[in-house]
Computed example of a mutant assay.
Amino acid sequence: MDDSVDTIVRRCRIRHGKGDGIKIYGGLGIQIQKNDISHNGQVGISIEDGADPVVRENSIHDGNSCGISVLKGGKGTIEDNDIYCNAHPNVYVANSADPLIRGNQIHHSGSCGVTCVEEGLGTIEENDIYCNQSVGLYIMNRANPVVRNNTIRESEGDGISVCFAGRGLIDGNTIRANAGIGLLIESEAEPRVTKNQILESHSDGIKVSHNGKGYIESNTVIRAGHGAGAGSGICITMGSAPVVKNNLVKDCLQHGVLITDESAGIIERNTISGHQGNGIAILRRANPIVRGNVVRENKGAGVFVSQAGRGMVSDNRLSYNRGQSQLLVEPGCDATVRDNIVS
């Protein structure tokens, strides 16, 4: 479909084609509604070259490639569809495409639920993204979408992965019971992560790795690590340096917040409680600023510094932690400790 006006494709069965089920490029006024699009050799619906269709209430499934792809500046409103069992990502956004993806069921892909790459944009909101074979939502290669108010659950991999200089606003999502990490930030990625519920991740709740950055504020991270037998609420490793503020982190299998392997960052005004390990652990030459946190009722120390850990630990309130000490700095460490309240 090219340069079309007021084209409507409705209640059709489009299946077993050798190429794309529907290909839209450069058109306006196109509506794709209530169709069953399946078993095509390539993409179920392909949107390219500035096309701006409405794609609503379709069933798009069992394709040999992606369910929907939006490329090369494509736009579109993709709403209330059931997108499932496609071999590649159910939804794929790339090359500065900027669609609205809202209210869809996106599930049981042979790959990721949604992939946004190569400077892809878009608003991804109020979708139910579940039971995909890899990552629920994958953001990478300078992609910068808005990801808001989705449920991302029961992925075979991570809930959300942001990597290779990916960015984006990740706000108000429920990320639950994913088999990997709830939210992974790595390889110079720098998203803004706010007001999410990250629950029952089998591994770490949030992990920032390999020079990852980002602003992580006002999230709730609960019961990480119980599926895989290991996992902290927030793990910062391999030279990473995020800002972590005003989060609630509780009841995880290992530490509340772990900073390790020459990482840094600011850990400020968080409430950290009920963990099987330490509330905050600073290990292996990590050098963070840890200030103004409430750390209580952990089975280990409130703050534990070991293995040449460094950093500034100040103005924290430490209480009812059951380790050897509320605040323990082992020999060989060079942490500055001041103005903490221990009870």
Rank of each mutant, 00 (worst) to 15 (best):
D339P: 03
I272P: 06
C66G: 07
N247F: 01
L169G: 09
V147Q: 05
G277C: 06
E126R: 14
G300I: 11
I106A: 04
G239W: 09
L28C: 08
I198D: 03
I45Q: 00
R291K: 14
S325V: 13
I206H: 05
G205W: 01
E79M: 06
I289K: 06
S155E: 10
G159N: 04
N173I: 03
L183T: 03
V305F: 09
E79R: 08
Y92I: 03
G74V: 04
N64Q: 13
A241E: 12
C66K: 11
R192S: 14
S4L: 13
R56V: 06
A308Y: 12
V117W: 10
I185K: 07
Y320S: 15
L28F: 09
Q324Y: 10
L121F: 06
K23A: 09
I24S: 03
N127K: 02
I83N: 06
G29M: 04
D128I: 12
C12F: 00
K213V: 08
K195A: 13
N149L: 15
D62M: 07
Q31I: 05
V290M: 02
I280Q: 02
A230H: 12
T194K: 11
E186N: 12
V193D: 00
M140T: 14
G309C: 05
I101N: 00
R322Y: 11
S319H: 14
K207C: 13
N270F: 01
A165I: 14
I37T: 00
N316Q: 08
H16F: 05
G67Y: 02
V290G: 01
R192E: 15
R285K: 15
H226E: 07
G274W: 05
S203Q: 12
K195W: 11
G27M: 07
R11M: 07
V295M: 01
D171C: 10
L100S: 09
R296Q: 09
L327V: 09
G323R: 07
S325L: 10
I106Y: 05
